[in-house]
Amino acid sequence: MSATILLWAITFAQIMLAIAMVLALARMIKGPRAQDRVLGLDTLYVNSMLLILVFGIRTGNTLYFEVSLIIGILGFVATVALAKFLMRGEVIE
């Protein structure tokens, strides 16, 4: 019984997060300006991080926690670097 509940909830959460990733990707492709694309990329990073966390619950393996932590850190660094580039035209001055 508890396995059935969890399986349905996890599948549903994965579908919703996948749709959220598609929406963020659509915003990244559509633009219209560079800052919108950076915002879409940041949302895509966060959504993929959550998707991998849910995948870790599905498999019962704590290895996926580290994967999603690394994705979170890389997403933060990427967005800060891109925002800096939009502001100054250079990342490291």
Binding site: A9, Q14, L23, L39
Partner: peptide, 26 residues
């Protein structure tokens, strides 16, 4: 059973809020 329901509810809330946020972004 209660652990399963609790985990399911939190997963549903989290994924639903993330979907709402991404829909707003779009």
């Amino acid at each position: 059973l209660w652990v399963a329901w609790l985990v399911a509810a939190f997963l549903f809330i989290g994924a639903g809020l993330t979907l709402t946020g991404s829909f707003g972004l779009y």
